[in-house]
Design a protein around this nucleic acid. Structure first.
Lengths: 342, 342
DNA sequence: CTGAAAGCGCTTACAG
DNA sequence: CTGAAAGCGCTTACAG
């Protein structure tokens, strides 16, 4: 591969002039610029990033710390962050994060410092790992954390409207006419699980509806737990006419349980999920769900991080990304409220 | 961050000696080595990769070209390749590949040359894009392609036993006693779809079973297409007692269709998928499936590529990774063959 | 066993 | 508007 010297020789200029053209600096006569551009084109010259980085003292490299869970959420987030970073001329290095392995953060630390990464984006649940976060603070590398359990631990964070999203889902079911609305909870050890439950409970009480304990069933975020929870909920003497599941996986579990019990969705049971993950469109009927806008999360993360890199001193930014309800085919007016039926 | 000079000064040696210690070269007296190690530790020194790369003329960087489809397959492959690369001290840069955008490969080309990537792994279906492949050949960057449609186009390729996997699935259903075994095909424009179909057909005929056209239904790899295909298959006068779907998504579609028709799985219908993707464990009953061993694919890809990087001259290697059948709960002996039933 | 010199391919002041 | 010099932080021959 050719170097800046070969380009300079061919264009009959100094390497400094070539450098100016490459970096789009002003103060190069147009004819000169054209000559350089032609030489670059003819030699098929591409600057060596390692050399640029070495000299500039910035790597233009972002690290993304992802859990080794093969969730669709993670890959979508990754893809969107990649696209955002590219817009700003940054590359992304991915580090896997295994919560269970105690010395895992050592490998990340080494990679981050080895590559002289400019900043780090921490996907959930990495933000709750004190080792990683303390390290980044100690070496003064800017970072932004997505959906951490505790906001006050970080200078920059991105979160979504977990609570309001749950409120909107519940309000929608109420507006359809449902009065016995159940909730299958996400893991209550996570903040988002507690906020989604709170949104559900508050909306019920705001609308004068009771929320007996028999309408709240615990899940663990998995399809299977939603399936079990729904089986319990639906075999009560007075079963709910609608279920708001804490995430899409559990909503799918609930739909599978309904299938087996011969309960038609949405005619006899309405179901809402949360997240808009791939599975919500793989189930029939397609799942009405609270959309977690991953594209927006990615954009905000990169923006935040880049600003923190520009101005590392006491930079603080907490962004709240709005969710919205995506209406599909898993909800309907409850049977006893439908007109035209005997 | 400290440099090699500071370490050298503190340890009272030349930078060359520090370099020797960092790179594990022999010929350093043990006491000297210890002094250097201590200095490295005290200064918390981490070598600058950009400088090392610049000097060495190798980036120790692999590129992975992935489709922008948010498939669980893609992220698992990515995670496993990441882990394999790390073992060999390589980092991985990911490039998204959008088939539909004509100038997409330009961005990949630029990134690959900019970073002086040592080699490229192309995930399906990128290997069938002539632009990308021709570029890599032109600039002489070694690459390995995973599951391409045409093997002869590449020097290094990884594929799995699509045909044998389909044979094994079909043979298993026959061994249970099924005689009316249907197949929902993957897209026939892809080699893997054709091979899976061929494995199914050949195994039936080897066992003296007819394969009437009414038992083969076309799908397009999606859950929905499996759902539609199964509805057609199961509403025939003589419906199949088993369905071998070309992938897990379509198998799930078939299960959903059976649910709605009140057909119990596995009592009244056996279903097998292909791939062992996440969804196979999210459905009930859990899906018996032909496992595509992504970990092995990742290992073989990285190995192949590293060998090609070591010896770029006319290096050729085509590896075939074996699949295996993972027995779960979606298959049973057909009703009419079960003992103890009237 | 150890080190002084040169240079990888760029950019950053500085000079003209 | 253009360029000669110095140097980013390392490793590669070479010498002793």
């Amino acid at each position: 591969m050719s170097t800046i010297h070969e380009v300079a020789a061919r264009a009959n200029v100094s390497i400094k002039t070539v450098s100016r053209v490459i970096n789009g600096e002003s103060g190069v006569a147009e004819p000169t610029r054209q000559r350089v551009l032609t030489a670059i084109h003819e030699l098929d010259y591409v600057p060596n990033l390692s050399a640029q980085r070495l000299k500039r003292g910035r790597s233009e490299l972002l690290a993304l710390v992802l859990p080794r869970v093969e969730s669709p959420y993670a890959i979508k987030l990754f893809a969107d962050i990649l696209a955002q970073a590219r817009k700003h001329q940054y590359s992304v290095l991915v580090f896997e994060h295994c919560l269970d392995q105690p010395r895992q953060h050592k490998a990340i630390e080494r990679g981050v410092r080895n590559h002289r990464v400019d900043g780090v984006i921490i996907a959930p649940p990495g933000g709750d790992n004190p080792d990683l976060v303390n390290f980044l603070r100690a070496v003064q590398i800017p970072y932004v954390v997505i959906s951490p359990n505790r906001l006050q631990d970080h200078a920059c964070s991105i979160q979504i409207t977990e609570y309001l999203g749950a409120c909107e889902a519940t309000r929608y079911l109420i507006s359809l006419g449902h009065r016995r609305i159940a909730h299958i909870t996400c893991l209550q050890s996570e903040r988002f699980g507690r906020e989604r439950l709170a949104g559900y409970l508050d909306t019920l009480s705001e609308n004068g509806l009771p929320a007996p304990a028999t309408l709240v069933s615990e899940g663990d975020n998995s399809v299977e737990s939603g399936y079990r929870a729904a089986n319990v909920l639906l075999s009560q003497p007075e079963p709910p006419t609608a279920i708001f599941a804490g995430n899409d996986e559990m909503a799918v579990g609930a739909i599978l349980a309904a299938y087996q019990l011969g309960i038609h969705i949405p005619d006899n049971l309405s179901v809402i999920g949360f997240d808009d993950s791939a599975i919500s469109l793989q189930i029939f009927p397609h799942l009405t769900t609270v959309v977690q806008p991953i594209g927006e999360i990615a954009r905000a993360s990169v923006e935040c991080l880049l600003e923190a890199i520009e101005d590392p001193n006491a930079y603080e930014d907490h962004r709240l990304i709005p969710t919205h309800l995506e209406l599909r085919n898993s909800c309907a007016i409850p049977k006893d409220r439908r007109p035209g039926r005997p």
